[in-house]
Nucleic acid binder design. Structure first.
Lengths: 330, 330
DNA sequence: TCGATCTGGTTACACGTGTCGACTTGGTAG
DNA sequence: CTACCAAGTCGACACGTGTAACCAGATCGA
């Protein structure tokens, strides 16, 4: 195994001092270096295959180059995944490395984690425990909050809130002339906070519009209860509109609707969220909401750059954060 | 912002030398330290909220404490995600931090990435380009291969190969008396390698057993072709068994079957892969294969420990890597 | 009593980098 | 001829650790 090649090696090979090498590699314009030697150093560095030691640089600079994303156990298949990739891209453009830490394990172990990773900043997607908050503060690292989910008592930092997702769903159903609504969530361990926020929004919006807001159900693997409820609900209303928590849930609703003998979309309309991969493969193809979190991703990158005193990237022009993908279930 | 508290601070506060502090904190048994002073140092360290500088430690040790998982753009919702979490857990148990880098961006940029992250090792799930391979070699870091997918020309390192997945699917269908098989894959950007490997396995196995192996289709959003093919295929065979690439694909098959007027499972049987969340919600509920990658995850951890000369964890007892979740589509 | 051994701890160095102040040079004005 | 200046380099330090080498004092065998 070839031992690491250091800047001293480069200096020796190029016949200059180590300081000069450092100046050239970090191309500091204020240090006066002849163009000839600059080229020479750059060339030998490349020839020797020099890559600086991140540890040494971090030690010297007092700050690392890693941006650590502390992810809850989310499903990253859909738009959330796309947003995370965009954050990664932006971070790379800032000259930093974007790494993810996933799983529930970090919840009280952040201190030991930060004792192993020389992070430049930490990006959170949920409130931290006070203990963890102290850990990140003790490490002298900024915490960037990318909370896509509104959190009680905290000013929300992104433009898309869960309420407007539900609002868009309801608006679409009402545009189709439907005034009898129901909300179906999923019994899941993940994304529980999202489900609660959406449910609350559903109830509020319905109340404001003078609609019934008590048709609510959580569905698990067993669909029998859902079948029963759909039957009852649609008996006392002309045409039922189901606001599904996600496309997964919507699949369950479709199955239950058939079992209940309800025609989709004639007697029962469904609208999901996330435009999952299988949404176009259901029967009938699923109408759903597509989120666009790019603005949020860029917002995160801007906060990051500001906190680290780096050049702040431009905000993208107006993009519509929510759009309805109309297929055949509404 | 409170400045970082160093081991020198602890030493000063405890009235001992910095070396003693270091000995205590890394509790080296060979160094002679009184139990009293040990307690005292440990206490003051806790009181001051001392956390070592990962950068300095890495610089001194010549090796970082980060295990970097270089992930392709996989769907991590199912069993793969569980395996990754297990790898993370094992890594943590080894005293290392397990971070993920995801996205296609690293493909030729590994050198610059390793220039920012002080990694102890790199875990790959696909072959690296030669350029990237040089980068990791130049950094003097071991590469741990966790290739769940068989790769041509490379001895495969895990027990589950794609062929046995397909084998299990076919075995189950044949147990049900089905001898007319078809393979349906998905037109996707991700997981393409998996799809090809599975298709090849399907063709080989069918040939070996003297069955037709030319009923093959890739499905995209448009199901019309699939509907047509299912109709044709089931006309010249009594009962058709469809080997689906994934549960997603299976959903498409179910939709197409209904459109073609075929009863499931009487006239057409389907079996998927992955036991996705929605598999129990389809209509009828989907029979599928559940992978258990825990053995593979532990194998990765063992290789990792061996490469870094750490105590190698025990291999788990025998677990069945593949099991059939029988529901109602077969 | 005196050297040998053990105990509890400290001093000093190295890891690889960024950067400040100092140090050579030519060149030029006084 | 001296004083000064700017351009181009370099020596030296600090960042925070882990650990080998060393040292004062106590204990102990002869």
């Amino acid at each position: 195994m070839a031992t690491r090649v250091t800047s001293a090696d480069v200096a020796r090979a190029a016949g200059v001092s180590r300081a000069t090498v450092s100046y050239v590699l970090n191309n500091r314009l204020d240090a006066r270096v002849t163009e000839a030697t600059r080229e020479h150093v750059l060339d030998t560095a490349r020839r020797l295959g020099y890559h600086g030691s991140p540890a040494a640089r971090a030690l010297r600079a007092g700050r690392g180059e890693i941006v650590m994303l502390l992810l809850p156990e989310w499903n990253t298949a859909g738009e959330v995944g796309r947003a995370l990739r965009e954050i990664g891209r932006q971070t790379t453009a800032l000259g930093l490395a974007c790494l993810r830490y996933e799983g529930p394990e970090w919840r009280q172990r952040l201190a030991s984690l930060l004792g192993m990773v020389t992070a430049a900043a930490v990006v959170t997607f949920e409130p931290l425990t006070t203990e963890d908050q102290e850990a990140v503060a003790g490490a002298g690292i900024p915490e960037i909050r990318a909370w896509f989910l509104d959190s009680p008592g905290e000013p929300h930092t992104t433009q898309i809130d869960q309420a407007s997702v539900v609002l868009t769903q309801i608006d679409h159903l009402m545009d189709r002339g439907i005034r009898e609504l129901a909300f179906v969530a999923a019994e899941e361990t993940h994304d529980q906070g999202f489900a609660e926020a959406r449910l609350a929004a559903f109830q509020t919006i319905c109340r404001e519009r003078g609609l019934r807001n008590d048709r609510i159900l959580s569905v698990d693997d067993d669909l029998t209860e859902l079948v029963e409820r759909l039957r009852v609900w649609s008996e006392d209303s002309g045409r039922l509109g189901v606001v599904a928590f996600s496309d997964f849930t919507a699949v369950g609703v479709l199955s239950a609707a058939q079992a209940a003998g309800l025609q989709v979309p004639a007697e029962l309309a469904v609208i999901g969220v996330d435009d999952a991969r299988f949404a176009s493969l259901t029967r009938p193809p699923l109408t759903t909401i597509k989120l666009d979190l790019m603005n949020e991703a860029i917002a995160v990158a801007r906060k990051l750059a500001a906190a680290l005193e780096l050049p702040v990237p431009e905000a993208d022009s107006q993009r519509s954060p929510l759009s309805v993908i109309v297929r055949s279930t509404t």
